[in-house]
């Protein structure tokens, strides 16, 4: 998870989030989309990934294999900035499994900016010794295969992986995500602040990862480590489903 500089932006406003490549979230028929992509994909790794398919939208959440994900990046712009680390942790609604967790540091093809080093703590020398994402692609896609990704703020993982693959193999990557920030926004950003809120200078409820977690009684973790953030996101999803949805909730209600 790349955290925005508080000096630049007080909170992450959902209505300003970058548009996703897929138009309307719920409109995508993911199993169908995967079948098409399995046909058209050229890279064998990518082809195998799509061919494994995804659960259909009418699957109850309790039965969906999930994969909490987080990437640390050199900046916020998927076209200009690159990925420096990836954290993955497989989960279900019942349990999050550390035993199958993954964490990689990767060498971005763009330069590492000092300001991002401050945030995620991954340094030039670590990055220099790290492999290129291309070398890890098979392992990454295998880990993702058959699962639905869980992220906090869908504007990072999906566009960055898509861009990274385009740069490396000339093909992008599409996959469904459950966005825990968007699930929070459904509760706390249902309507824009009214005149009274503006008059009184009321701040909207923060839907950042740490603040969202604290509302569910989840512990405070040190941020900006891809694996810790993935775990934090995984726990948040379990909490959100326990409080606001149910294990029977259908996947199509929460993915995009």
């Amino acid at each position: 998870m790349f955290y925005l500089d508080p000096k630049k932006l007080r909170d992450q406003p959902v209505d300003e989030e970058p548009e996703l490549s897929q138009s309307s979230a719920s409109a995508v028929n993911w199993p169908e989309r995967f079948r098409q992509l399995a046909e058209t994909a050229v890279d064998p790794r990518l082809k195998a990934y799509y061919a494994a398919g995804v659960p259909s939208g009418d699957t109850p959440l309790a039965e969906v294999p999930l994969l909490a994900m987080d990437v640390e990046t050199t900046g916020l712009n998927a076209r200009k900035d690159g990925i420096v680390s990836i954290g993955l942790i497989p989960m279900t609604l019942q349990r999050i499994s550390c035993a199958r967790a993954g964490h990689w540091v990767v060498r971005p093809r763009t330069s590492l900016k000092e300001e991002s080093i401050v945030i995620h703590g991954i340094t030039h020398s670590q990055v220099q010794q790290a492999p290129d994402l291309d070398q890890l692609l098979e392992a990454l896609l295998q880990a993702m295969q058959g699962s639905v990704a869980v992220v906090h703020y869908r504007g990072i993982e999906r566009p960055f992986l898509d861009a990274a693959l385009r740069t490396r193999i000339g093909e992008g990557l599409e996959f469904p995500v459950i966005d825990t920030m968007e699930l929070e926004a459904r509760v706390h950003r249902q309507k824009p602040p009214g005149w009274l809120d503006r008059l009184l200078g009321r701040q909207p409820v923060s839907i950042r990862l740490a603040d969202s977690r604290s509302r569910y009684g989840l512990p405070r973790y040190r941020p900006h480590h891809a694996l810790t953030d993935a775990l934090a996101c995984a726990e948040l999803l379990q909490a959100q489903i326990a409080h606001r949805y149910s294990p029977e909730t259908l996947l199509e209600r929460v993915w995009s």
Partner: peptide, 14 residues
């Protein structure tokens, strides 16, 4: 031990 742990969330009252 840490690498083998699983995590689960339980809402108050469950």
């Amino acid at each position: 031990v840490a690498s083998q742990i699983e995590v689960g969330y339980f809402r108050a009252g469950t």
